[in-house]
């Protein structure tokens, strides 16, 4: 039993270190998509992952990455479960993950919008977000595109240092 607990903890540490395919500076734990790692009595490691976006093409790679790492670490039986509920939110990106994003020139997300009961309101007046330039630290920045190379990011530019940068959207 003690061995199993230690083993489950070790398996968790291994799964946590798998890099995200789209944001390879982050581990799956940093991104908050690794929801749980446990071990069945028969030694099967069960890892639960949640997708960031429904269409995230990296989901299959994340599953493969976790399974491969665990097998290489000596766990022959690995089961990957998909967890859809509760849905992923950018709030689950850890402080460590946010620090790594900024270090790599990607602005981390602010707090996800609180979801009140009733219809999601449509706001047409410009939404003021204060996004700080990850290169020079200036707050004098503007959005150039709500969508970027992957669903989870938007494109911004800094008016102080003139550099474009990516920004992980709040969701």
């Amino acid at each position: 039993m003690v061995t199993t607990l230690l083993d489950a903890r070790r398996a968790r540490r291994i799964a946590e270190q798998v890099p995200d395919p789209e944001l390879p500076m982050l581990t799956l734990a940093d991104l908050g998509v690794l929801r749980e790692v446990s071990m069945d009595p028969d030694g099967t490691v069960v890892a639960s992952l949640t997708p960031t976006y429904s269409g995230c093409p990296a989901m299959a790679e994340m599953r493969a990455g976790v399974a491969a790492r665990l097998k290489d670490a000596g766990y022959p039986r690995v089961e990957i479960r998909t967890v859809l509920d509760p849905p992923w939110t950018s709030d689950w990106i850890t402080p460590e993950g946010r620090r790594k994003l900024a270090e790599h020139g990607i602005a981390p997300p602010g707090a996800a919008p609180a979801r009140a009961a009733g219809p999601v309101p449509l706001v047409l007046s410009p939404i003021r977000r204060s996004v700080t330039c990850p290169r020079c630290g200036s707050a004098d920045t503007e959005e150039t595109s709500r969508f970027a190379a992957t669903s989870c990011k938007a494109l911004w530019r800094c008016l102080a240092c003139r550099e474009p940068f990516e920004y992980v959207k709040e969701i």
Binding site: P21, A64, G65, K71, D72
Partner: peptide, 14 residues
């Protein structure tokens, strides 16, 4: 295994 990138794990013949 030196998989700094998840894609690399795909090429390693599991």
């Amino acid at each position: 295994m030196s998989d700094d990138h998840v894609y690399m794990t795909l090429a390693e013949g599991h």
